[in-house]
Design a protein around this nucleic acid. Sequence first.
DNA 1: TTTGATGATACCTGTAGGGTATTGAGAAGG
DNA 2: CCTTCTCAATACCCTACAGGTATCATCAAA
Lengths: 305, 305
Amino acid sequence: MTRGNRNVDLRHLRYFVAVAEEENIGRAAARLHISQPPLTRQIQQLEEELGVTLFTRTPRGMELTQAGELFLEEARNIRALVEQATERTQRAGQGKLGRLDVGIFGSAILDAIPKLLLAFRNRYPDVKVVLHTMTKAEQIEALRQRRISVGFNRMLAPLADLEIKQVTTETLLLAVPAEHPLAAQPVIHFAELQDHPMVLFPTGARPSFIDKVIGLCTDSGFQPLISQEVGDAVTGVALVAGGFGVCLVPDSATTLQFPGVIYRQLADTPPNFYVDLSCIYRKDDQSPILAAFLDTAERYREETA
Amino acid sequence: MTRGNRNVDLRHLRYFVAVAEEENIGRAAARLHISQPPLTRQIQQLEEELGVTLFTRTPRGMELTQAGELFLEEARNIRALVEQATERTQRAGQGKLGRLDVGIFGSAILDAIPKLLLAFRNRYPDVKVVLHTMTKAEQIEALRQRRISVGFNRMLAPLADLEIKQVTTETLLLAVPAEHPLAAQPVIHFAELQDHPMVLFPTGARPSFIDKVIGLCTDSGFQPLISQEVGDAVTGVALVAGGFGVCLVPDSATTLQFPGVIYRQLADTPPNFYVDLSCIYRKDDQSPILAAFLDTAERYREETA
DNA sequence: TTTGATGATACCTGTAGGGTATTGAGAAGG
DNA sequence: CCTTCTCAATACCCTACAGGTATCATCAAA
């Protein structure tokens, strides 16, 4: 038994389907924009490759044999699949289809990231976005191991193989217990924080938002009174609600409406009284999905500037 | 958006899969028994046709992009389908796969046909045999309209467009009511039938088995006493059981064991005291399935000769 | 720096797919 | 019965492209 299908190619299928549908080589040739003789030869060749008579030649044209009927079904099916495969691959190549693994940190899901992901899903509905909660250090490792394609974090330091792109900046607010003395004041000056215990976050890899806060204080000439260091903003605000002190948070933390916690703007704030939210990704990652995502992030940044 | 897949062909898929699996163009080329440069070009061409980067070139070789991963799955799938399609079509072309529509008459299902169909199904298990019960005239029309490929009947007359092939012959027996006078005799001579009413079958297109029986009688010098004409052998034997008379039947009718009916051989039978069972099919039918069936029928005839 | 992988390029060649002209074979029509 | 029409098949030519050889470019490891 010869393995003839080695030389069967999609052209044969296209031609075969045309002839089967037209039941006439001449018309099929016209439809295919070629002349009749080459089409005759291609059909003969296909029959020879398969070792099967696909058509019975009648004076009125070409009529499918039983085997031909079967092959017609198969050929149509294969052609449709090829069409679909190329189309899907093209969409994947344009970043419109596939999967994007994203690393996020505990409390970054408060404001910017949900909005950004929503915008991305609207533009690329067939890209499956998978979120992985992980710390900054874990994100960097996961990026290098290609377990994620992009991470979100704050206060990212430059790295040789990773690119950092700022998504948004947030100014800082003070989370205060409702019964706290500061809460009663009409205006709170930043320098007043030196007299009150503060909750800081996050624990983990430095530099982090903790260093940011400490830096702001030292720049203003005082050392903060550290009440607690906790893992993330959510826990921090929960401790504020529990009376552990005040806490500087990015303004997106206002999404957290704990009973007994109020958010206050500060007066006389030092320069750099804001914190960035950036995304981080491999410099050598050419994935069109990542490109599409970064483009969406860029638009988001411009819109919210 | 270019419809580039027009020129994607199966060779591209074969090459692509090899490169994707080897992750190295040189090794893939060796596996494909071609040299490296043409393979490089084919892959470039495929990427260009699709408008998608399928591989990232690294100093260690070729690595699939996300879109490439997707296309690999699709390509493997398509290649398997082509393999399957050609294989199935080849089997269909050899008569090993497909469908055979067979016309049979009411009582021919008694002996030969079940055995023959069984033999055919054993040799060609993937051919679906569909039985259609129809009269001789209906079979001929159905053959011409290609609703069936082969019919079974007795006493077929030659026709211009249809071929007749004898499958078997059966000698005749007499079905007698148990309490009939003839049943008591140790030997029944054919000529004695002139004194007893007979049930004849089948009604419908002539010439038929009825003419056969009448002809046997007239050749022996008498006119049969006709009790009833009925549609088929089953009804005929049923009437014998009801005392309507005796009935000449092909010996396969002994499959019908009605209470009160006994089958007797006759003595002094005239020549041609048998009836044929033939199959009939279109002379111009080139179907390999029909050919396979006729071959099985021929073997059956030889084995039962 | 050198060496040794890798894939990419340049250029040639032969084949096979496509074109035109023609033939052969039934069916239809006068 | 001969002609005519309509099919597919054949003969023959030409060109585009798959495949070959030789060489280059690049990067990593020694």
